[in-house]
Nucleic acid binder design. Structure first.
Lengths: 310, 310
DNA sequence: CACTCTTGTTTAGTATTGCTGATCGATCAA
DNA sequence: TTGATCGATCAGCAATACTAAACAAGAGTG
């Protein structure tokens, strides 16, 4: 006898279908779901039996979606988005009192982590977990309640809210302000190592040493020389160690500037850049009270910094 | 290692959850899914393990939803609605050229089925399947592309469109217009059996014999006597067989009136009632071209009837 | 109060489903 | 042509889901 259950497609097969359709590859889908390609193949076949029609056009080398697959895919996706979200909501009580935020590594270490104690004092019953990781993969977001990302704020499929602007300015150890090669004017940089931050390279508005020097018409200093680092924090730590002068992000350097571990040798050195820090989370995600509290606190901390900073 | 899949709740367990939550009963959910209560119990436990928190409050006798379940349930439902719809879309190519309509039994037999040949002549490549069944259960709608229902048109969660109004009028076999007890005026009904249609009883606007007689100030006829039938068609067939006089629905009687198998003994006998015939289908369901063609044809047939009828 | 009915739980055993690993065939690039 | 890659297939195995039966815990009844 037919009953409503027979009408629903086999659910696990749908997961294989979604992955295979997204990747247009059974092999990659298999990879994603940690099974063998054969398993995917069988699941798809099962779904095709249910549909009574092929879902993929096998062209030997690769696979393409049929109209039936194309038409049903959006609904399948929406369904899984909801299931995923439903899963999080179910788990909410078990996660109560815990906020997990995925954060750009340097920002996490130099800005967020040091302030975290303050949050814990305000909200003693909530513990915050920081996961420092680059990029926002499915994996990361699946685990974290939200993310703090460095960029322009346009992430598709995600909601975002501006947290903090970023400015860039030269910083160095206070020791470089003394002695025979003491830095007083930009021209003095010729006697010192320039430290480069590669992490800013995909922001066209963010000056590198060459453009910073050009903008100030400084002659006789080679903006290209010096070591390069792929994370802002490495540049900062090198500078603090007296290795040279870094063109540092304000948010990352702020704490060290405040403590005197770093100094800004020039009065007019800072440049506002396009990239900034953003709170980011998947559209449609339910944000628990704990998460909201944490977001609110982070935003408050950010405004504090803006009043004191630069 | 954790990957995105581990984040998704177990899909089959979700189905059990949805059914159990909807019915607030494991036993009924088991029934619906054609498994034993034990199976449901285990699936729910599995989901609770995933959630890390209970989803049902077991109060010995019955079960209640916890907040976690309450909060996630709407999303789970939406997900299944989409999955169900995706399933239909996948099957569309295989169902091409076939329209399945669920229809109130009497209307199907006396109105729809006889006209069906016309549809087939207009659309030779499409075959229409009629499933005559009462009520609109999940089962019925899952199988049918849409339904034709008798009622007021307000079905929740469903879209509907008015097909046809209904009127009620006395009808009988032409043989009753002859002989010594020939029916000429309502008062003559005292010599004949009154046939009652129980299927109209839940429409307050639909007159039964008692109220029909009262409205016409007919004395001396007992509106309560006579056999009762639970379907309009049974009343019609009884009347056609000469068993008595029925207070019949126009749409159901029309064909027999046209053929002379039945006659309407009184000129002013008909009453427009609140209930009517509606095209009904689940909100958000994708209607294929074939289905749209059929709907359009049915509506055309309905207007034809209105011009000729009453 | 005992009795019974109903409902959910548990457990061991079984059936079904899903997956692997090996093999094959097809396609594409060199 | 060969070699590489990808999907299909099949037998065997692993994991999952289900059943049947016994059990426990209210709720209604006499």
């Amino acid at each position: 006898m037919s009953d409503p259950n027979d009408r629903l497609p086999p659910l696990n097969a749908l997961r294989a279908f979604e992955a295979a359709a997204r990747r247009l590859s059974f092999t990659q889908a298999a990879d994603e779901l940690n099974v063998t390609p054969g398993a995917i193949s069988q699941q798809i076949r099962q779904l095709e039996d249910y549909a009574g029609t092929p879902l993929f056009k096998r062209t030997g080398r690769s696979v393409l979606l049929t109209d039936a697959a194309q038409a049903s895919l959006p609904l399948v996706r929406e369904a899984f988005e909801r299931i995923s979200e439903a899963g999080r909501i179910m788990q909410a009580p078990a996660r109560k009192g815990r906020v997990m935020v995925s954060c750009a590594p340097s920002f996490a270490a130099k800005w967020l982590a040091p302030k975290l104690d303050g949050f814990h004092r305000e909200h003693p019953d909530t513990e915050a977990w920081i996961s420092a990781d680059m990029g926002l993969t499915d994996f990361t977001m699946a685990d974290a309640d939200f993310a703090i990302r460095y960029g322009r704020g346009n992430y598709d499929g995600l909601k975002s809210e501006k947290l903090l602007d970023e400015t860039v300015l030269p910083v160095c150890s206070p020791s470089l302000l003394e002695g025979p090669d003491a830095i007083r004017r930009p021209e003095d940089l010729r006697h010192h190592t320039l430290l480069h931050d590669e992490s800013s390279e995909n922001d066209p508005s963010c000056p590198d040493w060459a453009s910073w020097l050009r903008a100030r018409r400084v002659e006789g200093v080679d903006g290209a020389r010096g070591p390069r680092f792929n994370q802002a924090i490495l540049v900062i730590e090198s500078a603090a160690a007296g290795r040279g002068v870094a063109l540092a992000k304000q948010a990352i350097a702020a704490a060290d500037l405040a403590s005197g571990r770093l100094v800004a040798p020039f009065a007019d050195g800072s440049t506002l850049i396009d990239f900034g820090y953003w709170l980011v989370w998947p559209k449609g995600r339910h944000l628990s009270p704990d998460v909201r509290d944490f977001m609110k606190w982070v935003k408050t901390e950010a405004t504090k910094g803006e009043i004191v900073g630069v």
